[in-house]
Amino acid sequence: MSEMKKATRDGFGEEIVKLGKKDNNIYVVDVDIGKSCKTGAFRKELPDQYLNVGIAEQNAAGVAAGLATCGKIPFVVTYAVFGSMRMCEMIRQEICYPKLNVKIACSHGGVTPANDGASHQSIEDMGVLRTIPNMTVIMPADYASAKKLVEKAAEFEGPVYLRFTRDAIPMIYEEDVELEIGKAHKIQEGKDVAVIANGDTVCIAMEAAKELERQGISVKLLDMHTIKPLDREAVLECIRDTGKIITVEDHNILNGLGSAVCEVAAEAGNAVVRRIGVQDQFGQSAPYHRLLEMNGITAENIVNTAKELMKN
C-alpha cells in the first residue's frame, strides 16, 4: 500500500473523460453537483455528451432511461444518498425493470462526506439497490480500482451502481490492476481467518491483516468490490479454507456486504461470520476517522474480532 492518498471520485472523474473520448455514446447527466462529483473535465472537454438537468434527480433517472433507449450510455452523477434513495423508484421502474444501459455513478459513499453530517452520509444505498433485480452494485477500494471498475461498468450492458468516496483514501493498487465485475479480488491468501471488505474499508482491513500476521494469525483477505452479483464461490472458498469470516464495510451492517456474505454462509453452513460496519445508526458532522471509530470500523476492532474468533 502506498503512502499516497486519492479520493475514488477523482478516479471516476478522470476515467469518464477517457471513456467519453473513446465512445461518443457515453453521456454524463449531472444534477448540479458536477463540480463535487468531478465531472468538470468531462463537461469542458465533451460538451456535446454532457447534460445538466438541475437539482432534479428523479428526472435525471428518467432522462437517462430515455437516452439509453436511443443507444446512449448515460452516467447519472450525484451523491450516493440521492442516487440510491431519491431516485430509487425511478431506477427500479425505468432503468432496472427494462434493464436499460444506465450507470448511476455516485460520490460521497458511506460516511466519507463526514463534515456534511447525517443527511449526506449514505449508509443504506448499496443495500437498497442490491434488492432491485437486474442491478449491479459496486464500490471500488481505491483510485486505480475506481478507474478500472468505471471502465468495466461502461463495457457492461445493463444498470450499474458505482459508489465512490468523497475523501482521499490510500492508494492500494497499481494502475494496471486487473478486476472483473462480480469477481472478488484476492489481496492475500491465508488459512486462519478470512476478511472480506470493500470500498474505503479495504485499506483498514489490510492494516489489520498485517497486524494479525505479526501476531501469527494467517489472514485471507478479499476486496469484494461488487456486492451484487456477489462472488459466491469466493465466499464458499473462505468458508472451506477458514470457516471464520469477518466482513468490513462503510455501510450499515444491515443489507450490505455483511448481509450478502451471511446469506451465502447461512445457506452453506459451517461458518461463523462477524460483521463490522455502520451500527444501524445515523452519523453526525465529525471527522471521517472519528465516524469510522464510532462504528468500530477500525483495524484494531478487526484484529480483536479475529482473535476472538480464533479462541472459539
Binding site: 428523479q58 428518467g62 430515455g66
Partner: peptide
C-alpha cells in the same frame, strides 16, 4: 415518470 423518459429520447434525437 414518462415525460422525463420522453425528454431523454428527444435530447438523443437532437444530439
Amino acid at each position: 415518470q414518462g415525460l422525463a423518459c420522453g425528454v431523454g429520447m428527444a435530447i438523443a434525437g437532437k444530439k
